[in-house]
Design a protein around this nucleic acid. Structure first.
Length: 398
DNA sequence: TCTGGGGTCCTAGGACCC
DNA sequence: TCTGGGGTCCTAGGACCC
């Protein structure tokens, strides 16, 4: 039997939070984002969207389109607090909830909705209660899979309710532009359009014919897409709390720089932030990554594996600095970042140590590996010398 | 005055081992 | 004179999402 999965998406969440604090903003064009160098629109009110403002747009450009817009830098503590209120509200309806981001979640409501006659009415009540008690507006998608629920919640905004039944998949998905498909972004969409795939319907047709060109274009993702587009795929709502696999911070400079010491200064601050956050979350990581963005927007990623996981500031900063030194070659840089990767819980690692009685497995492994490599090298060169001796002897007729 | 910052996942190539 | 194939680990880069 199919499940009943909801995708709940808060409408212009950041803007709505600001409106709750300052109601005079209601009905006005509001932009959340920075107006300084490199500032872009994070999100904006529907009033601003009427002028062509959208997220990702440089703020100065948005202000050209909509000079009366009110620009707010963003209050993330407020958003985070309201987000928690939202998730707690949803939990009153079903405990099977998966946070997808700060302002959206999947909910398994199979049990709650199976015997409900008027699902739309039920969900309208949900929306109204959320608005009355927390002050937030949302759009809801209802479907047998997570993918379809996600697509559905996107169809009517704000305060929309959209139900996609499996038998209606073709009818409801096929007319949509290919770029609206979750997982097909601004690189893949133009490639598909170039081979005549303009809508989800076009893609569905070729996928169901097992078209080789399409198959090659997607790699592993192809089989996922084939399920999704036909109304199958994951309906497992993952209740595990989010557990970060990496912690990173980056910053765009006030002006581009190619100066080692200047950039190293930024790395110091970023490394400190990363270290502090990792400590606060009880995480240690075994990879340090340096990210540079050049003035022509090329991304450079360099990383190094440590022989034991850490969240120590000095170690992170040192490793990042070494990577910077190796990779900075006169290029003008506009952004740098530091990320600690392959995170595990520090407490887990301590347990591991105590099991082996302070025996450091990684050090031991590395030492053994180095030794074996050295032996291999020697063996090879000895073999080679002997062979050349033999050749020499042959040549001289001895 | 061009294009943020936080992430996740996948792929591909090279080094190395057996 | 010719030159494997499977598997793992590490690194770099790219696509995508919010």
């Amino acid at each position: 039997m199919s499940k009943i999965i909801l995708h709940i998406d808060l409408n212009t969440f950041f803007v709505r939070c600001e409106e709750l604090v300052n109601p005079t903003l209601i009905g006005k064009p509001v932009i959340i984002g920075h107006s300084g160098r490199g500032g872009i629109v994070s999100t904006c009110s529907y009033e601003a969207r009427k002028y062509g403002v959208h997220s990702g747009q440089p703020t100065f450009k948005a202000l050209e389109l909509c000079p009366n817009a009110i620009v707010i830098p963003g209050h993330y503590e407020l958003y985070s607090r309201k987000s928690k209120e939202f998730f707690n509200f949803v939990k009153q309806y079903s405990p099977i909830i998966e946070k997808a981001s700060i302002d959206e979640c999947y909910v398994d409501m199979t049990k709650q909705l199976s015997n409900v006659k008027d699902v739309v009415k039920y969900l309208e009540d949900f929306q109204n209660k959320l608005l009355q008690t927390i002050g937030l507006k949302c759009s809801i998608g209802v479907a047998p899979t997570k993918f379809l629920a996600k697509m559905a919640s996107d169809m009517k905004k704000p305060m929309g309710i959209t139900i996609i039944r499996r038998k209606d998949v073709r009818k409801m998905l096929d007319p949509l532009p290919i770029s609206s498909f979750y997982g097909i972004g601004k690189k893949t969409a133009p490639r598909l359009e170039a081979i005549g795939i303009k809508t989800i319907g076009d893609l569905a047709k070729l996928v169901n014919e097992d078209n080789l060109e399409v198959k090659n274009a997607f790699g592993k993702f192809y089989y996922v897409i084939k399920d999704w587009i036909n109304g199958y795929g994951s309906d497992e709502v993952d209740v595990e709390p989010w557990d970060p696999k990496s912690i990173g911070h980056s910053t765009t400079f006030i002006r581009d720089s190619s100066d080692f010491e200047e950039i190293k200064g930024y790395l110091r601050d970023l490394s400190k932030e990363v270290s502090d956050e990792a400590k606060q979350k009880d995480k240690i990581g075994s990879n340090v990554q340096l990210v540079l963005k050049t003035n022509d927007f090329k991304m450079i990623n360099r990383s190094v594996k440590l022989n034991k996981p850490t969240n120590d500031f000095e170690t992170i900063f040192n490793e990042a600095s070494i990577l910077l030194e190796k990779n900075l070659n006169g290029q003008e840089i506009r952004l740098c970042g530091v990320t600690l990767q392959n995170l595990i819980y520090a407490s887990d690692y301590v347990e591991q140590l105590s099991i082996f009685d302070n025996f450091d497995e990684n050090d031991e492994k590395n030492a053994t590996r180095d030794l074996i490599r050295e032996l291999n090298r020697r063996m090879k060169s000895e073999t080679f010398m002997r062979a050349s001796d033999i050749l020499k002897e042959k040549k001289h007729g001895r």
